[in-house]
Amino acid sequence: MQKGWISPEFLIKSSKADNTVIIGYASVFEVTDNQNDIILKGAFKNSESHNVKLLWQHDVTKPIGVIKCLEEDEYGLKIEAEINNKTLLGSEATALIKQKAVSGLSIGFTIKSSDYNNQGLRIIHDVELMEVSIVTFPANSMAGINQIKQRSLNDTNFNCRSLEELAYLVKKLEKI
């Protein structure tokens, strides 16, 4: 074989390209936000992670990764997402999050059901969630990133599994 040529047997067996995983609350229930809205438990019951986008600062032209799981608990809407560090914006977002310059989470949605209380606050019962953004200033002051960690592209150990992830893992196990 001549020097400089790659043999047909050349294979990449591993990759160091890591994503950054964030875990936190995209929304916290029964908190009056700076829009005078209060979101109630159950408002996200029809939200599925595969339809919701992960954005930077609510900018639809700046997706920065994927949402792996959305789940309501007693406190709020828990999120686990992966920031794509292969993109310039993703690596910049990761650096700012690690520095704690940015730590807020905020949601973009349309309201399906709401009413107003006697104080004039909008009580939101049901929404169609479109996006979760990593933001500098969240509307809901309690919403934010609680945990950050690096994850290899080959790592499938999620704390919170979506149906699509479970289906992927089942297929992977069937091949073993």
Score class of each variant (00 low, 15 high):
167 A>E: 12
120 G>C: 09
113 S>W: 04
95 A>W: 06
80 E>S: 08
122 R>H: 07
173 L>E: 13
89 L>H: 14
21 V>F: 03
147 Q>E: 08
116 Y>T: 09
176 I>Y: 08
40 L>Y: 06
69 C>D: 04
74 E>M: 12
9 E>C: 01
43 A>S: 11
34 N>W: 00
82 E>L: 13
138 P>R: 07
65 G>A: 10
64 I>G: 01
120 G>H: 11
68 K>E: 13
36 N>D: 01
54 L>M: 15
93 A>E: 04
17 A>D: 13
81 A>N: 12
124 I>A: 12
69 C>K: 10
148 I>E: 08
3 K>W: 09
18 D>W: 05
29 F>A: 06
59 D>E: 11
70 L>D: 09
105 L>H: 01
48 E>P: 03
32 T>N: 02
19 N>P: 07
12 I>D: 15
153 L>D: 06
151 R>H: 12
153 L>E: 13
42 G>H: 08
150 Q>W: 05
132 V>G: 04
66 V>W: 10
15 S>F: 00
88 L>E: 09
50 H>A: 15
127 V>D: 07
97 I>E: 03
129 L>G: 02
105 L>C: 07
72 E>N: 03
155 D>Y: 05
48 E>D: 14
85 N>T: 13
136 T>H: 02
172 K>Q: 12
133 S>P: 03
130 M>E: 08
121 L>K: 12
30 E>Y: 06
46 N>S: 14
31 V>Y: 02
82 E>H: 02
77 L>Y: 08
138 P>V: 00
16 K>A: 15
